[in-house]
């Protein structure tokens, strides 16, 4: 199938992904002072903001310290937001290459996502520190975290195959993405827990695949409990659907990238 060829193209050329990843980092931190420390700073700043708001709004924390409740959500959320944002612009951003060299183009959004994944891993160090500080015990359930991460990777890759290829034709997607993500943050259980959402809104709310994923992280990292299957199932369904649609659309639109981008 034509849509799958865009994946095998990347598979055949693993070195390309590595080289693009290296480029992402080299370019990103070339003239930056704190460099990779930004990976901490981004979620840390949001966490401080939410902790401040919580001091007078009083979200229900389920008897856990609020900083860790919010950071466990900010960890996957920051990864999601930054990877969606950069990967959406990856086709437009690499226009100079795309116009000149024939290469598997799906590697561009994927490399952008993987570069953000490295930030995610750096930010995880702070998560570990919080867990140690608050003396939270982790069990075998922590072994499920890679599955959540994998689900999120599929979700982001599928979504950005769609957005990055449309952005090549219409810049509206690029311009609108930060606003969409801002909106998305508030309809995701980041500063509040999913329990705060009224029951009758829950089925609709859980159509947001990040709801299930974020709550999954929080259940495991803060409450040492299993994630709610219903919300995870809907996240899985949405992620797979987006991935399939993303592949088909990307395969169709990439033919004219060099002409339009």
């Amino acid at each position: 199938m034509n849509s799958l060829r865009i994946l095998t193209g990347i598979g055949r050329n693993g070195e390309l992904l590595l080289a693009l990843l290296r480029k992402e980092f080299a370019v990103r931190y070339k003239q930056s002072v704190v460099g990779p420390l930004w990976a901490f700073l981004q979620p840390l700043i949001l966490m401080s903001l939410f902790v401040m708001i919580q001091s007078f709004v009083h979200f229900d924390t389920g008897n856990a310290p609020y900083p860790i409740v919010v950071y466990a959500a900010l960890l996957p959320w920051t990864f999601f937001a930054s990877s969606v944002n950069t990967a959406t612009g990856s086709i437009v951003g690499n226009a100079a290459i795309i116009r000149k060299i024939h290469c598997p183009r799906a590697a561009f959004p994927l490399a952008a996502i993987l570069a953000c994944l490295v930030d995610f891993l750096i930010a995880s160090v702070f998560m570990a520190a919080l867990i140690a500080y608050y003396g939270i015990g982790l069990s075998w359930r922590a072994g499920l975290l890679p599955l959540l991460l994998l689900l999120q990777l599929f979700l982001v890759f599928g979504l950005t195959l769609l957005t990055s290829s449309i952005a090549a034709y219409r810049r509206d997607v690029l311009i609108g993405m930060p606003y969409l993500l801002q909106f998305w943050l508030f309809v995701s259980p980041v500063m509040y827990r999913i329990e705060a959402v009224p029951d009758r809104w829950r089925p609709l709310y859980e159509l947001n695949p990040m709801a299930g994923i974020i709550e999954g992280y929080r259940s495991i990292l803060v409450y040492d409990s299993l994630p709610a299957l219903s919300s995870l199932a809907s996240a899985f369904a949405v992620a797979m659907l987006l991935f399939a649609v993303g592949l088909v659309v990307f395969a169709r639109l990439e033919k004219r990238f060099a002409d339009v981008v």
């Binding site: 050329n13 070195e15 080289a19 693009l20």
Partner: peptide
Amino acid sequence: ENVYLNGALMGLSR
């Protein structure tokens, strides 16, 4: 860095 990046884009291994 550009030589290595472009080489990879052209399908050459490191």
